[in-house]
Write a protein that binds this DNA or RNA. Sequence first.
DNA 1: CGATAGGTTGAGTCGCATCAACCGGGGTGG
DNA 2: CCACCCCGGTTGATGCGACTCAACCTATCG
Lengths: 239, 239
Amino acid sequence: MPDPFLRKLEAYAPLRIESRREIEKLTSRIEHLGTHADISYEDEEFRTVAVLLSGWASLYKLLPDGRRQITALLLPGDLCDPNVLLPAATNPCVSALTPVTLAKLSVAAIRAMAASSPDLAEALHWQAMVALNIQREWTVSLGRRSAAERIAHLLCEVWTRLDMVGLANVSDCGLPLTQGDLADAMGSSTVHVNRVLRDLRVDGLAEVHGRRLVILDRQRLANLAMFDPAYLHRHKDNP
Amino acid sequence: MPDPFLRKLEAYAPLRIESRREIEKLTSRIEHLGTHADISYEDEEFRTVAVLLSGWASLYKLLPDGRRQITALLLPGDLCDPNVLLPAATNPCVSALTPVTLAKLSVAAIRAMAASSPDLAEALHWQAMVALNIQREWTVSLGRRSAAERIAHLLCEVWTRLDMVGLANVSDCGLPLTQGDLADAMGSSTVHVNRVLRDLRVDGLAEVHGRRLVILDRQRLANLAMFDPAYLHRHKDNP
DNA sequence: CGATAGGTTGAGTCGCATCAACCGGGGTGG
DNA sequence: CCACCCCGGTTGATGCGACTCAACCTATCG
């Protein structure tokens, strides 16, 4: 299996062959879940972390009065745990946006590996920092970008992240989000997302049909979004 | 010196005495900077990380057209580096909101320590996860809370974080931010921040005079903000 | 074939930005 | 020592972006 987790860890720097082996061994406990299923990160016997092998998931928070905010999109290769390794906090939940397959890793095993393989520890740290950078960029989007800029930025981000794990084509990629999901992620309303997507389409920047995103003019899309992929720390290939 | 960095690391779990010693040794290289100074995280000889010992700083990003978003507030005890240990990304900068004193740690030294002291590694990981949780909570605020709820939430967050490093009184604490800074952090305008603060004052929830925050009615403030301190992982004392 | 989830479009409203003016205080230079 | 200035705060008037409500359309599925 061309494990997207490995692929992601290696987007920063290649791992030693032994480290790859270890990871491959650990990602053998597989689980399948359907759309809208909640991904529990408290497991029976051991404290585990789930790695998304395929499908998309979202991390969200519900406010007491029912408002919902998606705080992160989890793509293949991402870790699903909101507080990796720590005693769980409260409310924030992870749920599958599509059917997903997960690998469950024991936290103890991961930490043992990290302790003995510095390259792995570095790769794990790297992915956590990328997650933090993404979160900060969302802060910028929600705080200072207009709805159109924000959505354009998200499209750029998603395409780039998928590309980093080998799941994007030159000008299109999957985007299995409903307009409602997009709205909950970008802090706007379904109706407005719809109108923004229409505008992007008629302006020839990007199209979102069904479950796919087609980028029509990358340059202008990135310009509108003020998108600079540096924060994702992509260290291979082209923009 | 009652080092706020140690204090913060130990908010999760106490460190072994040797680990504390090591940290104390490392935090000896001190630097002072004035308000508005930029905190460089690329040092001459070694890759370093700065720890805030006193004063406040902000992490911000400037958009090409001049809009500014503060993505994080750095309080005493916090690490100042946006991508701890990684090759620097671009744009996001750290600048002092007040005069600050910093301790510069060599990244290599920290990592060596972490490798040999699991309790320290855990504490460092913990603080990174708390930073991520804070960032996610900002995402919720900016995406789904009204300006008043958002600002109330920030006030609760700041008081709690200061309390965790011993810098808050029961019902007040420092808040050396201008209304403009607050606006840039909360994605609104100076004028609106001003009006919201007035409302909070006349409603008897909180007052922001000069450089201090006085909490008049914690319960109602937290209610308005829908603030639940669990995400900060405060493991000691009371709420 | 009805039901339901997602998408699309229009009309009316509101939160908040923007513009503009004014105030108060602490620092500075003449 | 005083006048000035500039920064931060305060308040009012106006306009726009985006939300809400509501209707309708389309595709998929049991």
